[in-house]
């Protein structure tokens, strides 16, 4: 039987070496189960830092982040680049694990990157670069994929389509999605971890809200979406 997917933070403290005050002080939170989770907060609130701590790219000063059932975790972010000397097609074929040719075709089609498969990365638009970068992560073996504003430059309809595809295609995986977009976070997420405004001791706690966990904007009740968005935005404006 597969181990339950879980992330538990206990007394997490973190500060950047060049800073004289803590960014996170004794943070506790937990995420469990498969599905789509989000980290929400205003610019500079510490979303990416927390995502990096969860992904193991940064080490906490004290406290811990325990991950269970998440053997393969990946962290992607939006300014990543592909090697510039090969085409998108060559790169995706190179990095796709064996036996993933059908998945590759599916991802290429769903993320709408067919038309520039034979282009080199530096020639692509920002939105195309985001989609190609994310596509190569979706091709890999993973239990947890942390996506730090990976679709920041993608237009909204495409972003919605991609998020819906992720939820439909990978129901057994855990996603942690970092975004500034309150609407998509409200609609798609199972749980939203909101980073509130920092106090004198930094951020001392996260606000955990339930999301609507839908697969599409089309099925969402507009009033419920608006209420959820307001709830998320109010939480992120609150000082904790």
């Amino acid at each position: 039987m597969a181990q339950e997917l879980m992330i538990v933070s206990r007394d997490l403290c973190f500060s950047y070496p060049e800073s004289d005050h803590a960014l996170f002080s004794h943070i506790n939170f937990s995420i469990d189960g498969q599905g789509f989770f989000s980290l929400f907060g205003f610019s500079g609130s510490g979303k990416s830092t927390l995502a990096r701590l969860i992904g193991g790219l940064l080490k906490p000063d004290s406290g811990s982040i325990l991950r269970s059932g998440l053997e393969h975790s990946l962290f992607s972010y939006n300014t990543e680049r592909l090697p510039g000397w090969i085409t998108v097609r060559e790169h995706l074929e190179d990095v796709a694990p064996p036996g993933r040719s059908e998945l590759l075709l599916e991802i290429v089609s769903e993320l709408d990157i067919v038309s520039f498969m034979d282009h080199k990365f530096p020639r692509l638009s920002m939105g195309q670069k985001n989609r190609v970068n994310f596509a190569r992560y979706l091709l890999q073996d993973f239990d947890l994929l942390i996506a730090d504003e990976v679709l920041a430059n993608v237009d909204e309809p495409s972003r919605t389509r991609i998020l819906a595809f992720m939820k439909r295609r990978y129901p057994e995986k855990m996603f942690i999605y970092i975004s500034h977009n309150a609407r998509e976070v409200a609609v798609f997420s199972k749980q939203v971890l909101v980073i509130p405004q920092a106090g004198a001791n930094g951020i001392t706690g996260l606000i955990s809200l339930s999301g609507m966990d839908l697969d599409d904007f089309g099925t969402a009740d507009k009033t419920l979406v608006q209420n959820k968005m307001i709830e998320i935005l109010q939480a992120s404006s609150r000082a904790v």
Binding site: L74, E80, R81, L82, P83, G84, W85, R136, Y137
Partner: peptide, 25 residues
């Protein structure tokens, strides 16, 4: 970092890839 990160994440950053990236960039 922005190019090598992915290869590090999937455990495929060998010396050839690393050097090719750094030379190209």
């Amino acid at each position: 970092v922005d190019v090598e990160h992915f290869f590090r994440q999937i455990g495929k950053l060998n010396s050839t890839t690393e050097l090719s990236i750094r030379i190209f960039e």
